[in-house]
Amino acid sequence: TTITITINGEELRIRGDHEEIHKILKAWEEDHNDEEIVRLIRELAER
């Protein structure tokens, strides 16, 4: 699965399995701050 998210003008492409993507979207849905979401995404992007 690949998704693209733009946060603060920075486009981040994430490839991951369903569970990893779900974790990010769940954090977003629960209204975590952008920095935390960006950190989760970067961790995935670095793999």
Rank of each mutant, 00 (worst) to 15 (best):
I21R: 01
L12S: 02
R13S: 12
W28R: 01
L40P: 00
I41A: 04
V38T: 08
E46R: 07
A45S: 07
L12Y: 09
N33K: 06
G9L: 03
K23M: 07
A27Q: 13
D31R: 15
E43H: 07
N33D: 12
H22R: 10
R39I: 05
E29N: 06
I3F: 02
E36F: 12
L12W: 06
L40E: 04
T4P: 01
R47P: 06
N8V: 03
R42T: 09
E10S: 05
I24N: 01
T2R: 05
R13Q: 14
L25Q: 06
I41C: 02
I5Q: 00
I14Q: 00
T4K: 08
G16Y: 05
G16C: 08
E30D: 10
H22P: 00
T6E: 06
R42C: 11
I7D: 00
L40V: 11
W28T: 02
L40W: 01
H32M: 15
I7A: 02
E35D: 11
E30G: 08
T4E: 04
K26N: 12
R42I: 14
H22T: 13
R42A: 07
E29Y: 11
K26I: 10
T6V: 15
I37F: 12
I37Q: 01
I14W: 03
D34G: 12
E35Q: 10
A45F: 05
E46Y: 03
H22N: 14
K23W: 04
N33P: 06
T2P: 04
E10R: 07
K23Q: 09
T1V: 15
A27K: 14
E35H: 06
R15G: 06
I41L: 15
T2C: 06
I41V: 06
A27T: 08
D31F: 09
I14E: 00
T1I: 15
L12A: 03
E20V: 12
W28M: 11
H18D: 08
H18I: 12
E11L: 12
E35M: 13
I24G: 01
E29L: 13
I5R: 00
I21L: 13
T4Q: 05
L44G: 01
I14L: 12
L40A: 12
G16P: 02
L44W: 05
L12V: 10
E30R: 08
V38L: 14
T6S: 08
I14R: 00
A27C: 09
I21H: 01
H32Q: 14
I41F: 01
T6Q: 07
R47K: 14
G16Q: 03
L25M: 09
R13E: 14
N33Q: 08
I41D: 00
E10N: 09
E10F: 04
E19V: 11
L44M: 11
E19F: 09
I21W: 06
K23T: 06
I21D: 00
E30S: 11
L40N: 04
G9A: 03
E19R: 10
L12C: 04
I3P: 01
G16D: 04
E10Q: 12
R15I: 15
T6C: 14
L44N: 02
E29C: 07
T6I: 15
A27N: 06
I24K: 03
E43F: 03
H18S: 12
K23E: 09
D31H: 14
E43A: 06
I5K: 00
D17L: 10
I37V: 12
T2I: 12
K26A: 13
L44P: 00
E35V: 14
E46S: 11
E43L: 13
R13T: 15
R39P: 00
R39K: 10
I3G: 02
E10L: 10
G16M: 06
G9C: 02
I5D: 00
L44H: 03
D17W: 07
K26E: 08
T1M: 13
I14D: 00
L40H: 06
E43G: 07
I7W: 04
K26Y: 05
I24S: 01
D17R: 08
I37D: 00
T4H: 08
R39W: 01
R15V: 15
L44Y: 04
E10K: 13
R39L: 04
R42F: 04
R13K: 15
T2Q: 07
H32E: 10
A45T: 08
L40D: 02
D17S: 15
E20G: 06
I5E: 00
H18Y: 15
I7F: 05
D17H: 11
T1C: 12
E29I: 11
K26C: 05
L25I: 12
K26P: 01
I21A: 03
R13L: 10
A27F: 07
K23P: 05
D31Y: 09
D31Q: 09
L25T: 03
L25H: 03
E35C: 08
T6L: 12
R13D: 05
E35N: 11
D17N: 12
L25P: 00
D31N: 15
D31L: 11
V38P: 05
I3N: 02
E35W: 09
N33F: 15
L25D: 00
L44I: 10
E20D: 13
L25V: 09
I14T: 01
N8P: 01
L40C: 08
L12Q: 04
G16K: 02
R15S: 15
K26Q: 13
R47Q: 14
R42G: 06
E36H: 14
K26V: 09
E29K: 04
E43Y: 02
H22F: 06
R47A: 12
I5W: 00
N8Q: 09
E30H: 08
T6W: 08
D31M: 13
E19A: 11
R39D: 05
T6D: 04
E11A: 13
A45W: 03
N33W: 14
H18Q: 07
I21G: 01
I37M: 07
D34Y: 13
H22A: 13
R15P: 08
G16L: 07
L25Y: 04
I14G: 01
E29H: 08
N8L: 08
I41K: 00
K26T: 10
L40Q: 14
K26S: 10
E35T: 09
I41N: 00
I37C: 03
D17E: 11
D34Q: 09
I3Y: 01
E30L: 08
I24F: 04
E19P: 10
D17M: 09
R47W: 01
T1W: 03
D31V: 06
T4M: 09
N33G: 10
L12K: 03
I7M: 06
V38D: 04
H22V: 08
D34K: 13
R39S: 08
E30P: 06
E10G: 04
V38I: 15
A27L: 15
D31E: 09
I21V: 12
H32R: 12
I24M: 07
H32N: 13
E36Y: 12
T4Y: 05
R47H: 09
R47C: 06
W28F: 13
R42W: 03
E11H: 15
E36R: 11
E43D: 08
D17A: 11
L25A: 05
A45M: 12
H18A: 13
K26D: 10
E29G: 09
L12N: 02
W28P: 00
H22Y: 07
R42N: 08
I7V: 12
A45Y: 04
T1S: 11
I24C: 02
A45V: 12
E36I: 11
E35G: 08
L44V: 04
I3D: 01
L25C: 04
I37A: 04
G9K: 04
T1Q: 12
N8Y: 05
T4V: 14
E19Q: 10
E43S: 09
E30Y: 08
T2N: 06
G9Y: 03
E46K: 10
R15A: 15
D34I: 15
W28S: 01
I37L: 15
D31K: 11
D17V: 07
I41M: 04
V38W: 04
N33I: 14
T2A: 10
R47N: 11
E46V: 10
I3C: 07
T6H: 11
R42P: 01
L44A: 04
R13I: 15
I37H: 02
E20T: 14
T2W: 15
T1L: 14
I3E: 02
E20A: 10
I3Q: 03
G9P: 00
H18E: 11
T2V: 10
I7T: 01
E10D: 06
I24A: 03
H22E: 12
A45E: 06
I7K: 01
N8S: 05
D31P: 04
K23N: 11
R15H: 15
R47G: 09
D34W: 15
R47S: 11
I37E: 01
I14C: 03
A27S: 12
E20K: 07
E29P: 01
R47F: 03
E20P: 02
I41H: 01
T6P: 02
H18G: 06
R39Y: 01
T1Y: 08
G9S: 03
N33R: 05
L44R: 01
R42L: 12
G9F: 04
D34S: 14
W28A: 02
I37Y: 07
E11C: 08
L40Y: 01
T1P: 08
K26M: 12
D34H: 06
I14N: 00
N33T: 13
H32G: 13
E20Q: 10
W28D: 00
E29W: 10
A27Y: 09
T6N: 14
I41G: 01
D17Y: 07
D17T: 14
R39H: 07
E46C: 05
N8G: 11
H32P: 15
D17G: 07
R42H: 06
A27R: 14
N33M: 15
E19T: 14
L44E: 02
E29Q: 11
N8W: 06
T2H: 15
T1N: 12
H18L: 13
E20F: 14
I3A: 10
T4D: 03
I21M: 13
V38M: 13
N33L: 15
A27M: 15
I21Y: 03
R47D: 05
N33A: 09
D34N: 14
I7L: 08
N8R: 08
G16S: 07
L25W: 02
W28K: 01
R15F: 15
H18F: 12
T6F: 10
E43V: 05
N33C: 10
